[in-house]
Simulated assay, not measured.
Amino acid sequence: MRKLLLPFCFLILIFIVSCNPKEQNQTNKIDTENPDKKDFIIAVEVDSAQIPKSIVYNGNFKKAVQWKDEVGENLVILSESGYHRNEKFKHEFDDSADFELFAYHFCLDKNNLQIWKMYDFVADCPVDIEAEFYPQFPIITDLDKNGIAEVWIMYKVGCHGDVSPVNLKLILYEGNKKYAMRGENKIQFGANEYIGGEYKLDKAFDSAPSVFKDYAIQLWKENVYKN
Rank of each mutant, 00 (worst) to 15 (best):
E80L: 05
T32V: 14
I140F: 13
S164T: 12
W67G: 01
H105Q: 08
V65L: 15
P21S: 11
P21E: 11
D31K: 11
A216I: 01
L108H: 00
K177C: 12
V157R: 12
E193F: 07
W220G: 14
F133L: 15
S18Q: 03
V71G: 02
T141M: 15
S207P: 06
H160M: 08
V56D: 15
S81R: 07
I42D: 15
K29F: 08
V71R: 07
E130D: 12
K203D: 12
W67V: 01
L143H: 13
H160Y: 06
E150R: 09
Y104R: 00
V224L: 12
V157M: 12
P165K: 08
S48M: 07
I41W: 13
I153H: 02
C9F: 04
Q24V: 05
K117D: 02
G161T: 09
F10L: 13
N167W: 03
Y57M: 12
E87S: 10
A64S: 12
G161P: 04
L143V: 06
F93T: 03
D214N: 08
K203Q: 11
L172E: 02
I41N: 15
L13A: 15
Y215T: 04
K117E: 07
W152Y: 08
Y215F: 11
F106W: 00
K63W: 04
P126Q: 07
I77W: 01
K117P: 00
N146V: 02
F189K: 08
W116H: 01
V166R: 13
A43G: 14
N34K: 07
Y119D: 04
K62P: 01
G82W: 08
Y155Q: 05
L101D: 00
G59H: 04
L75F: 01
I14Q: 11
I51Y: 09
Q50F: 09
Q114E: 09
K221P: 06
V122A: 07
D214V: 02
K68D: 02
V76A: 02
E174N: 10
F121V: 01
K88E: 09
E174S: 13
S164I: 09
K203V: 04
Y225I: 09
K221R: 08
K117F: 03
S207W: 01
F133M: 15
Y215P: 07
R2N: 12
E193G: 13
E184F: 03
M181W: 01
P138Q: 13
S54V: 13
K200L: 10
I153E: 00
Q218L: 03
K178Y: 05
Q188L: 10
P165I: 09
M181N: 12
E193H: 06
K203E: 11
D128F: 01
Y134Q: 15
S210M: 02
V71A: 09
E132Q: 05
Y194K: 14
N192G: 06
F61S: 04
K88H: 10
N167E: 14
Q50S: 14
E87T: 04
F99N: 00
K90H: 11
E193L: 11
K169T: 12
Q24C: 08
P135K: 12
Q218R: 03
F8A: 13
R85L: 09
V127P: 03
G59Y: 06
F99T: 01
K156L: 08
I77A: 00
F121A: 08
D39T: 05
Y194A: 15
A208C: 11
M1R: 09
I14V: 14
W220S: 13
G72Q: 10
A43D: 14
L219Q: 10
A131R: 02
L201D: 11
D144M: 09
P135C: 11
S207E: 10
S207L: 07
F8C: 11
F205C: 13
